[in-house]
Design a protein around this nucleic acid. Structure first.
Lengths: 250, 250
DNA sequence: CCGCGTTCCTAACACATGTAAATTCCGCAA
DNA sequence: TTGCGGAATTTACATGTGTTAGGAACGCGG
């Protein structure tokens, strides 16, 4: 069931059957389901669990006193929220659902046990943590330096490639189940300007967006237009840890 | 010698004499010194070492093909760059000196050994890693939602509090050894606008900035004006892990 | 099929911030 | 002291993006 997580981690390293079974167990624990605009956890809460997104899209966000909201990152199926969050006393941001979301609440004990017994998983989760940090840094670059069109294009490239990594793309298409207002809150742009910019990207043929279906006819072209380089996603490790034993295990 | 690192970590947990000696050893390894505008490591390089900043200011940054530069974060004395960076094959960003910098290159082996032998240090480094991630998230909020004045004010609050945590403030003053162009590259603003905004903050009396000396006469006021809440720095743990044994050790 | 709420889209205008170019200031080395 | 180079500052003007407001399209429940 945590097939998206497994797909994602296998972009970095090969997992044994036992590793995958361990992840199954982890994902089976305390499953919950919530609707869009509901929160998984709120700023100020005690972070008791590590949340694993199984289905749907969620986001980290922070709301300022005067109502302004910034979406800090998107959670896609297979994404894990801060494997060591329990070191901190309270959440400094909220995590909310953008669509209906199914997720698993993983206890500290379970996670500790699984990583102690499966070094491959530990390694893969480290990679995931580092890539998550790299994505956050790239957002800093995105918000700081890129124009609205570059910024949006960059985000769409990132989301498409991340979705592809968890098996949720169909050719050069994928879903984009968020509102333009959400995109605005993520990119630090007004919803009006998001709309203008989407029209612009549509006009140049870089994207096709109908309803919640996004198509990127020419990913390389969109990447070039957005100054997007996929290096920060660190997808260059595939097969790096392969040896004879691994092959016999799977 | 790594007194700044020790000060910082002791904001989270108390360290034993043995813990501190271990950190001394770590910081003694492979010391290097470089001048401003030189790089510690570059995008694309193989991350062989974990760098520990001992003296001076550095920054993570990323340069776009067309020359635009974004400073992604600041490194102050006592800051450590990505304790598990060696999981990745290559750097996705550069780290450069803003002032003359002294740093230590820590090998993977050393770090592994020290954390294996000192669980308190492991725990403290986890806290540091999580706070670093929280700071990066806060920058996303900063760049996405805050106006120029709020943004700059917020950065100055953050830097002041971080410097205070490593013993580098003097009353309500500290150094700010970076150019206005650097601040612009960090905040996604032009150097002209940084200058305008600094004048504005000076005009309202929220800051006094002469040369490289920054004074914040009323930190609470600057925080309020900048919508700054220190919760994301997670400084609320002090003394949390105290018990009789700890007291006898120090 | 209707009606209602949400989302999308468009327009006009305001304003925050960027750009370009000069000038002044300042620290430092000769 | 002088001269130099980088940094800070200022000005005038351009423009990207925000704001406000309203209408059109869409989806969903009754």
């Amino acid at each position: 069931m945590p097939r998206h997580l497994i797909s994602k981690l296998e972009q970095f390293t090969r997992l044994s059957v036992a590793d995958k079974q361990a992840l199954e167990t982890v994902a089976g624990e305390k499953r919950r389901r919530i609707g869009p605009r509901e929160d998984i956890i709120r700023e100020g809460d005690d972070p008791a669990y590590v949340n694993l997104i199984l289905e749907g899209w969620a986001c980290r966000y922070k709301q300022l006193e005067d109502g302004r909201r910034q979406i800090i990152s998107f959670f896609l199926p297979g994404d894990l929220c801060d494997t060591h969050i329990y070191v901190l006393r309270e959440m400094d941001h909220s995590i909310g659902a953008l669509t209906p979301v199914t997720f698993a609440e993983i206890s500290r004990e379970t996670l500790t046990r699984v990583t102690a017994e499966h070094s491959r998983i530990t390694q893969a989760l480290w990679w995931d943590t580092l890539v998550t940090a790299a994505i956050q840094r790239e957002w800093t670059v995105n918000l700081g330096q890129r124009s609205a069109a570059e910024r949006l294009g960059h985000l769409l490239c990132e989301l498409f490639i991340r979705l592809r990594g968890v098996g949720l793309t169909d050719g050069n298409s994928c879903v984009l189940p968020v509102t333009q207002a959400d995109l605005g809150d993520a990119m630090g742009l007004s919803n009006v300007h998001i709309n203008r910019t989407l029209q612009e990207l549509r006009g140049t043929g870089l994207i096709v967006l109908k309803g919640r279906q996004l198509t990127i006819p020419n990913l390389a072209a969109l990447q070039a237009a957005s100054l997007f380089s996929p290096n920060y996603l660190h997808l260059d490790h595939v097969g790096r840890h392969l040896d004879a034993n691994d092959l016999s295990e799977t």
